[in-house]
Amino acid sequence: MLTFIIGRVTQALAMVAVMSALVFAAIFAIGNPVDVFLNEDMTQTEIEAVTKALGLDLPLWQQYLRFVSNIVHGDFGSSFVFGRSALSVVLERLPATLELAFAATIIALLIGLPVGLCVGLRPGSRADRAVMSVTSFCFSVPTFWAGLLLVLIFSVELKWLPTNGRGETVDLFGIPVSFLTWNGLRHLFLPAFNLSLPLLALIVRLTRAGTVENMGLDYIRFARAKGIAEWRIVFVHLLRNIAIPILTVTGLQLGSLIAFAVVTENVFGWPGIGKLIVDSIMQLDRPVIVAHLVMVVLLFSFINMLVDIAVALIDPRVRMSGKAK
């Protein structure tokens, strides 16, 4: 177990190193962020002074070395746009994205599991066919379009829910969250639902497929022959067996939801890191871009590791050891 965790952490760190070097070089190739913010009163003298003050006049390798040595000291540099520590700019937005991603996952599981089970137990029924077409729709509709449609229907026309923003937040252990107030929940629902759509469809399909497959297997028949109650068969024996792929996929998807909530956050004005990365790329705010991506890589690796551990706990066939790979 310990070897496994150490291996994963090393992997994650290597990934961070490679990724940060790539991003650094890419942004360097695009150009000088100072050019993006030129204003009518800046002369060449000021432009050069500012470029020098930001250390942007140095050759690439020197800039990178300087950056790495700063990171070792926990300093990602100061955002060009906000004038504050890039890491704190990212960290203060992270809770919003995490909340959105978790809410989306919970919605997807709460709706996806029962629906998948129901139709999986009656394959070929009319409900099954209807659910299958709806899920194809959820997969194929672009998030952006679906989001705008949700806003138009529920916010602009029906005026049931607010169009955007995070609403009221309350501090939970010092972290601002929306889901504890009614106003915050109303703001959270549409974006979370929008973000959950593809995952929801995925969970419905996985649950259905697992159910259909497992219901014909020997252990279910044996359980039936033993006279075990149907609900017990479904919720104890079946669910435990189909849980592994669902859990794995949900876990992996949670990482993507966090990293790629970009579109939903923009449509709903949700102040998370997705909205931040788009703005930062537009403005070549390199410290924030790098801090953001490092954060995402670490989160991603961490979640994957948790998923692997959880799977091993549920399924005794999976054993974690150095030789598993």
Partner: peptide, 14 residues
């Protein structure tokens, strides 16, 4: 003198 400022207001006062 504002540090790390890519868009300085200094030009107006030069």
């Amino acid at each position: 003198k504002v540090p790390n400022n890519p868009g300085t207001y200094a030009g107006t006062l030069k």
